[in-house]
Structures are given as C-alpha cells and as structure tokens.
Design a protein around this nucleic acid. Sequence first.
DNA 1: CCCTCATATGTCGGATTCCGTTATATCATG
DNA 2: CATGATATAACGGAATCCGACATATGAGGG
Lengths: 114, 114
Amino acid sequence: MRDQAAKFLPLNPATLHILLALAGEDLHGYAIMQEIARQSEGSYRLGPGTLYDNLQRLLGQGVVQERGRTGDSRRRYYRLTALGRGVLTAEIARLESVIHDAKLHLQAGRPGNA
Amino acid sequence: MRDQAAKFLPLNPATLHILLALAGEDLHGYAIMQEIARQSEGSYRLGPGTLYDNLQRLLGQGVVQERGRTGDSRRRYYRLTALGRGVLTAEIARLESVIHDAKLHLQAGRPGNA
DNA sequence: CCCTCATATGTCGGATTCCGTTATATCATG
DNA sequence: CATGATATAACGGAATCCGACATATGAGGG
C-alpha cells in the first residue's frame, strides 16, 4: 500500500486539501470547497474548475470513489478509498519530515532574516 | 512581510523544495537538484526544466536573488531574499496546521485504513 | 402552482506550470 | 587537446490551474 501511495507523491496543494477535507467525512463537491475555505480560515479557496478537474482525476486514479446518492439529487458524495487514505497518510508523513528540516535551517544562521 | 508572503501561498511542491534547499545555504541550480534528491532520499527528483522554470519565476517575484559569481564560471548561485525567507516561514506554519488537522481526521473513526 | 434565489455540478478555454529531451558551455584530467 | 562530468538553459507538448459561464435542482413565499 505504501508503495502504491508513494507513486502519487508529492501532492499539489489542491489535491492535498481535497483529500484532507474528505478524511473527516464523506462530502459532496460544494461542501469540499466550503470545508477547504473553513480549514484555511478563508485564505485558500478552490474554484469549481480546480475542484472538479481534480475530483475527475482522483476518481480515475482510484483515490476517491463516489458514494451512492441519497436525498438531494444534485449532490454527488465522494469518499476516500483505502488507497486515498494511504496516499494522504504518506503525504502527511513526508510533510512532517519537510517541516523538521525547514525548522533546522530557518533558525540556524539568520535569526531576523533580511 | 507576512501579508506579502501570504500572497504566494500555498506553495506547489517544486517551489517548496527549492526554497527549503536554499534555506540552509546558497546553492547553484545543479546543487539544488542534488540537495532535493538527498533530502527526500531519492524519492522526489526535480528535472532541469521544472527547476529553471521555477528559479526564473522566483527571481522575477523577488523571492530569490542571484549572488555574485565566484570561482566556477558555469555556476549561478541563488539565495533567499528576506521575502523568500518569509514565504517559506509562512508556508511551514500553514503546513503545520494542515498536519494537525490531518492527524485528527486520520486516526478518528478508521484506525487501520484499508 | 409559479417565481425566485441559493445550492450544486459541470463545461470551457486561455494562461500557467510541468518536465523530459536536447543543446551548449565550462571544468578537470591525462 | 581529447574526453567525460558538471552546469545552465532553451524547447515544446502535456498536464494543470482557475475564473467565467451554463445548467439543473431544491426550498420557500405569495
């Protein structure tokens, strides 16, 4: 699984945030946009173009899948597959190591930057 | 500064890794490629196309600048500007919050993924 | 019933970015 | 001065980004 997941890394920001939004619960597209805006406190917003391009690709890659429709017939709910969960987990682990490195370098040498 | 830096976020993976490589010390392009490969233990490699496209853009944005050439006349050394250091710092802070959220959701509910 | 507005998905097309291939120049060695 | 490794850069097709626009459905009021 980790081998499979590794092929998808690194994730671009849009993909990372979509997977993150879906990690908590299954959501439909419009709700994904809202959840990403909420998580970033409004500083990062995905437009529909970027969102649906990405969902289309992720469906094809088997990273997310569509859940059976219930209630509101407009909504298409998406959920992470096992692969998708593995990809997100692997990316988070990778980013932790990136952050670790960054902190070493950002404080070493130049305190006040400039 | 942070306001300025915020305009550049989120960083795509190539940009993040270039800035990270330069956070430690000034490097020339070829060395940036090697440093990124080293930091990721070979799992993420930037080709020259992606690297120089990005450096060109970052120079234009004032995120990195060229240092005076010394020694080997082929090499062009790059360094982070104050803005560049601020951008990297802001992105790292943002990613920490992303990781925090992700960990909540990834362990909640589904322990073993699958 | 309609009419209207918010919700929700999807399309479209230009701009940007990605990224491997190829070209060119310089260094180090013998 | 020949050779091979290092280093930068140009090139061009593919992929992605992303706002604007189009369409369809739901909720609620009159």
